[in-house]
């Protein structure tokens, strides 16, 4: 083993030198410089030299417009309500709505699902998961929300610690109460992003995130071109105060 330990680095060094000599011996100076630069670039590649600098999530506050892909989004408030139009919660639940002003600042129409996907359901506040997993009956009175949002993660609403598959929001145009599908350019809509939430949540803020959207002019991986790609990257994050439930939710929606 002694030999191996001593010879190992020496042998590698000698081999390396041989290779370099064999390659570089008859090169001109310019060729050597170019080869050296190429070798250096290759050498630093595995260490993430070309990765983009990881952007930090910017703060998200009520009333401050933020740019999300083709949209300018101003979160107005969050509110809870017993039912909103045709959206009726299961017993033991209520609806959670994030009210936002959304403007399509681009040149072409966008689907409301694009903004719906960019604002995922707030986590750990008892949002009822997707239908097959979300058994409304499993919600019990155990562990009522304690007041602040992270602690509001009640184990009752979500049996597993990581809430499985939170649904994307229903996007409703507040002015007429209809589901809005197309957001034409230059128009501002006051929309509600609505999820079903367990009554066990009683916090006064919810953590809201807005994911980054990236414009794909020409997709290298698929044949789809010219669309907004939802990135797995939080662009904006903040705590949004929740207004308590009001007796007449429809009046709330139409009040302002």
């Amino acid at each position: 083993m002694k030999h191996a330990r001593n010879d190992g680095p020496d042998l590698a060094f000698r081999l390396g030198r041989r290779v370099v000599t064999a390659v570089a011996d008859d090169m001109s100076t310019t060729q050597r410089v170019v080869a050296g630069v190429v070798a250096a670039l290759v050498a630093i590649s595995p260490f993430g030299a070309w990765n983009e600098v990881e952007p930090q999530a910017d703060p998200l506050t009520v009333g401050t417009p933020v740019e999300v892909g083709p949209f300018e989004v101003t979160v107005e408030k969050a509110a809870t309500a017993d039912e909103l139009g045709h959206l009726v919660p299961a017993p033991g639940n209520h609806m959670l709505a994030v009210v936002a002003h959304v403007t399509n600042t681009g040149e072409v129409p966008e689907y409301s699902s694009t903004i719906g996907e960019a604002i995922p359901a707030p986590e750990n506040v008892g949002i009822i998961p997707e239908a097959p997993l979300g058994e409304p009956g499993t919600v019990t009175e155990a562990a009522p929300g304690t007041g602040d949002a992270p602690d509001g993660a009640d184990p009752a609403a979500s049996p597993s610690p990581d809430e499985p598959g939170l649904p994307s929001a229903s996007v409703v145009n507040i002015e007429d109460g209809t589901s809005i599908r197309i957001l034409n350019p230059g128009l501002t809509y006051r929309v509600a992003l609505i999820w079903e939430q367990s009554d066990t949540f009683s916090g006064d803020v919810i953590p809201l995130r807005i994911m980054a959207l990236e414009w794909i002019e020409e997709s290298a991986g698929s044949l789809d071109n010219e669309y907004w790609l939802l990135l797995d990257e939080v662009a904006f994050a903040g705590q949004i105060p929740v207004e308590p439930a009001k007796p007449a939710p429809d009046a709330d929606a139409g009040a302002q």
Partner: peptide, 13 residues
Amino acid sequence: PGAAPSLRPGMLP
């Protein structure tokens, strides 16, 4: 193989 050959400039081994 292995011995550094004397190649002319511009030529690879």
